[in-house]
Simulated assay, not measured.
Amino acid sequence: MLFLRGANNRYRVADEDDVIFEAIQIYNRCFSRGEALTSPDKAKDCIKLKLAPFEYEVFLCLFLDNQHKVIACEELFRGTIDGASVYPREVVKTALQYNASALIMAHNHPSGISEPSQADRVITDKLKSALALIDIRVLDHFIVGETVYSFAEHGLL
């Protein structure tokens, strides 16, 4: 049960609309231009909020400046219930358009299983190599399922 403090400083039980409104506020704070991603957990929470509702795979990137402040969050590719085609050329092109210094990649697994597939590992390596050629750091790749898997936390970056 969620409680909210009202204007009179008394608490009341939050209804569904309150919860949705609060989620939208959190989402907007996470992806606001200039918002610094100060911890992996903050990035995870924001990305999970963005990707959890989809019933098909979505691949997105958070484009960051050299202080790890958000420049943009962009959904780059959509797929089906069990896959999405990701093209490194398009990721590089978009990163250059935003003049990003770093990025965080993320996609969801509608199955709920967060473990990376072999294809996930391969595309992560390809993207990391392609972006390194133009001095853009890949900070992490998150997979959102029932939990959030971090490539960086598992030593895969």
Rank of each mutant, 00 (worst) to 15 (best):
T80A: 13
H68W: 04
D18F: 04
A102I: 02
H107M: 08
R78L: 10
D41E: 15
D82A: 11
A43R: 02
H68A: 13
E75I: 11
K69Q: 15
L131A: 05
F151W: 03
E74Q: 14
Y87H: 08
L127N: 02
I123N: 02
M1I: 09
A14S: 06
K48I: 01
S129C: 03
D82K: 14
N66E: 14
I136L: 04
A14R: 02
N8P: 04
H154W: 10
P53V: 11
L103N: 03
A152S: 13
V122C: 02
L127P: 00
Y98R: 10
G79K: 05
R89P: 00
L4P: 00
G155M: 07
F77L: 08
I134M: 12
Q118W: 03
N28M: 12
T147Q: 15
G34C: 10
K93Y: 07
K69S: 11
N99W: 02
A119S: 14
L156Y: 06
A52N: 11
V19G: 02
Y149K: 05
L64D: 04
L37E: 07
P40T: 10
A84P: 00
V13K: 14
A106N: 04
F21T: 15
R5P: 00
F3T: 02
F63T: 07
F77S: 08
H154A: 12
E57I: 10
K126Q: 14
R33C: 08
S117C: 06
Y149P: 03
R89S: 03
I136N: 00
L156N: 06
I20T: 13
E75V: 12
M1E: 09
M1R: 07
D65I: 13
A36L: 09
P53D: 11
D120K: 10
A100P: 01
K48V: 01
A106Y: 01
V13M: 12
V144Q: 00
K48S: 03
I81P: 07
D135K: 15
K50G: 02
V138Q: 03
K93I: 01
